Amino acid sequence: MNESATVSTDRPDGFVRVQAALAQARHPYAPQWLEVAARTSQEAADALGVSLGQIAKSVVFKRKSDEAAVLVITSGDKRVDEKKLAPHTGALGRADADYVKARTGFSIGGVSPLGFAPAADASLPLLFVDQELFRFDVIWAAAGHPNGVFQMSPAELAALTGAPVIDVVQA
């Protein structure tokens, strides 16, 4: 049986949602539960023994025109350049922890690129994948909780999310 086909319910809700989304997509790798919380890209890289760039970090913004959530998945060693992102989204502002939780269903440090909780207004975040992730064969993303991660290739990330791949990092 495919390891990702089994969904455990003895973990936090966010982790279970990501686990179910990966199983439904027939993703070949089930999420892993780390013994330590990895709230930052560096903590995740250290826990996994991989380079910082292999961590697919989630950065959430709030679009100023309508307060829609914008989620960018980029390499842990890069910073998002809001000026490069603005042509795709419009003007952006910072998203605080309460906003991130309300719009994604995940707490900061565990925001996954899939498995979002149904938001009160039923709108999903606008999602973008940064092209810098394609420097790596294997990347790791948060799986709905600071202790949860899952692996994939950058191409699998784009396919799983349906997100456009764009250049949005600082030079």
Rank of each mutant, 00 (worst) to 15 (best):
N2I: 04
E3M: 14
S4R: 13
S4V: 10
T6I: 13
T6W: 10
V7H: 00
R11L: 06
P12A: 05
D13M: 03
G14V: 11
R17C: 00
Q19L: 04
A20V: 04
A20N: 09
L22E: 02
A25T: 05
R26V: 05
Y29E: 15
Y29C: 13
E35T: 15
A38H: 11
Q42T: 08
E43T: 03
E43H: 06
A44W: 03
A44V: 13
A47V: 11
G49E: 06
V50D: 12
S51F: 08
S51L: 10
L52E: 03
L52V: 04
L52G: 00
G53D: 03
I55P: 03
V59T: 11
R63D: 06
K64F: 07
D66V: 02
D66M: 01
D66H: 01
D66C: 02
E67S: 10
E67W: 05
L71K: 01
V72N: 04
V72P: 08
I73N: 03
G76S: 08
G76M: 02
K78H: 04
R79C: 07
V80K: 10
D81V: 00
E82G: 01
K83V: 03
K84H: 09
A86M: 14
P87W: 04
P87M: 06
H88R: 03
H88E: 00
T89L: 07
L92W: 01
G93V: 00
R94N: 12
R94G: 02
A95Y: 08
Y99A: 01
K101A: 09
T104S: 12
F106T: 02
S107T: 08
S107L: 03
S107N: 14
S107P: 00
G109R: 09
G109S: 04
G110N: 12
G110A: 04
P113T: 10
L114H: 06
G115I: 06
F116N: 00
F116G: 00
A117H: 11
A117P: 01
P118L: 14
A119L: 08
D121H: 07
D121G: 12
A122H: 14
S123H: 15
P125L: 01
L126Y: 04
L127P: 12
F128G: 08
F128K: 07
F128T: 02
V129I: 15
V129R: 07
Q131N: 14
Q131W: 01
D137Y: 14
I139V: 15
W140N: 00
A141V: 00
F150N: 01
F150V: 12
S153D: 04
P154L: 09
P154Q: 06
A155G: 14
E156K: 06
L160A: 07
G162H: 10
P164Q: 14
V165N: 06
V165P: 08
V169F: 10
Q170I: 14
A171H: 13
A171S: 09
